[in-house]
Design a protein around this nucleic acid. Sequence first.
DNA 1: CCCGGTTGTGAGAGCGCTCTCACGAGCGGT
DNA 2: ACCGCTCGTGAGAGCGCTCTCACAACCGGG
Lengths: 354, 354
Amino acid sequence: MTCHTAPVNTAARRPARNRPAPTLEEVAARAGVSRATASRVLRGDQKVSERAREVVLAAAQEISYVPNLAARTLVTGRSESVAFLVEESEERMFADPFFLGMLRSAQEAVATAGQQLVFTVMNRPEDQERFLAYAAGGHVDGVLLLSLHGRDQLPQRLESLGVPTVLSGRPLSGGRRLWYVDADNVGGGELATRHLLDSGRAHVATVTGPLDMCAGQDRLAGYRAAVEAAGRPYDEGLVSVGDFTAAGGHAATVRLLDERPDVDAIFAASDLAAFGVVRALRESGRSVGDDVAVIGFDDVPAAADQQPPLSTVKQPIAALGTAMTRLLLDRIEGRPGLTRRTILPVELVLRETA
Amino acid sequence: MTCHTAPVNTAARRPARNRPAPTLEEVAARAGVSRATASRVLRGDQKVSERAREVVLAAAQEISYVPNLAARTLVTGRSESVAFLVEESEERMFADPFFLGMLRSAQEAVATAGQQLVFTVMNRPEDQERFLAYAAGGHVDGVLLLSLHGRDQLPQRLESLGVPTVLSGRPLSGGRRLWYVDADNVGGGELATRHLLDSGRAHVATVTGPLDMCAGQDRLAGYRAAVEAAGRPYDEGLVSVGDFTAAGGHAATVRLLDERPDVDAIFAASDLAAFGVVRALRESGRSVGDDVAVIGFDDVPAAADQQPPLSTVKQPIAALGTAMTRLLLDRIEGRPGLTRRTILPVELVLRETA
DNA sequence: CCCGGTTGTGAGAGCGCTCTCACGAGCGGT
DNA sequence: ACCGCTCGTGAGAGCGCTCTCACAACCGGG
């Protein structure tokens, strides 16, 4: 025990455990006004006299009054908090800087708006019902949903229960009715592939993301578009399916190299995948950048720290998180004139691998 | 637009926006029972006939009834959710694998208990009042508090408002009354330092953590204890103050090397700091492991991936997060026989830097 | 046939707050 | 003196749920 011992507790106002919390009623009584007036003061309502304001504030202070949020939520229908839901395993969520970046910017944006973030990661499908009950139960005013796979109907179900939902990434299904914020995945895929093509690479392959996600599909579509725009045939043998993870990128590359040892450039659909690609390339004795050029996608912080530094398509992660949060908050407030889809531009960051 | 277009929305039960959500009253009416009975069924209460159960469940299903959580919270006084609060900047929170690991295990433990996690990171002190109002307002049943600095009275204030709080790390003040879960920091510091001493190092220095945190103080205390146990004088010139970050560790090492170029071993109070130490050592032309041995603290995942792999004191991060969450949940439930402090053991992991 | 005991159910009283509405006080213009 | 204002205030009705309590229905044992 090296720490100094505690000074006397400064503010043991309500020492007794389980003493019932003071209510607005008590504040009002103490201040000699009605509950209504006390409420008005505490909420910062305009129509109160200066005298009432002072006396109520003093009374509230004296008894350490804190308004009961459940009661307030019950009547107003607003909880002043939103959910941040990632449909991945904890493992993946915490290993992926993209999710972490989104969580960070969402948390910042929500806090700036004076609200709270309820953070949930859902691995098992049976959790979905529980989450649905939670969200529709009014403990959050809306949902930020990340990593939607396949034809999952969760966003539709949330919306139909009256819970505003904003997705990160265009959904595979229901895109017309749902709200989402996304990066220009097709454009990014094109950008990266075109660069590889233009720098004289003969066999430009791609390690894709999961194809049950739009981001995976779109980046592949961008790759294809660039290949065809260059007047080359789209060769399925140069497409190896990964899953956005390093392990997936590694495995996909091993398979690819096995079939097509002549590959001299790889566009990986995520930085994490690119890390796996680089490792597999090295293990096969190829030099990264020289023998085989590599471009990733995302521009996670670790990309710049790699040896050699990874060239990549920079996704505006913070802007994406902020935009989705703002959009959700605006929807909750009922702001008019909002658009369902927001696409943010990406840019090519050339470092040493391409 | 490469994605397939949406199939018809499967379950557009409640299409109209802002249609008032169905209430228990409606379920009861539809089922031909009282609100009380409907409530019993929906909560899974024992005392209901099979017939009542069926009919209520069917009615609820038909109208997509979801219980209003605010109303439930108002009467039960339980929100079934806890807050996870980190008193750091977003920058630090998201750069530190320790916090991320704690968040992950807390989220897992909370989800396992069927509850929700409200995630907050507080940079500015003025946020404290807002958080206090939020927590004491009953939107969470308790608080998990990380990275308490100095004599911050937040935990005391939370407790005095009736909000059970569990800290990660022993608080500098108020330790007798507060609840916390911690790793054996003193023991870990001793372990690392003794190993350095025993392997024949002549000038064993330490790069500390912030000394306004118990973890920083305790690891330093462990260092000192080991030095003195070895019969050597405690030399303040070998102590350089850092702050648990890589930048801090780097700066502290530069200062240290400047004063004491003869140093041949460094115990860094965190892995992040150790990364900074290693970089500074390299920049000074020294070889890590040979010229200067280094041991970190935490065993974050990146430690094993370093070149060379970092020796470190392994802190059971997941166990720490789980333990703190369980403790909080048990306190909320009012389980008897709980102890205020839990200290988890650490272990020395020798890799290549020492 | 009556009685204490169980069992399922419903009536009704809140939980602590917000919000609508009506009202009295104070004002200046006719 | 009257009217029509605005302005601050209080009474009271809920928000949707849980929980206590009383009660009716039914049980088997004396």
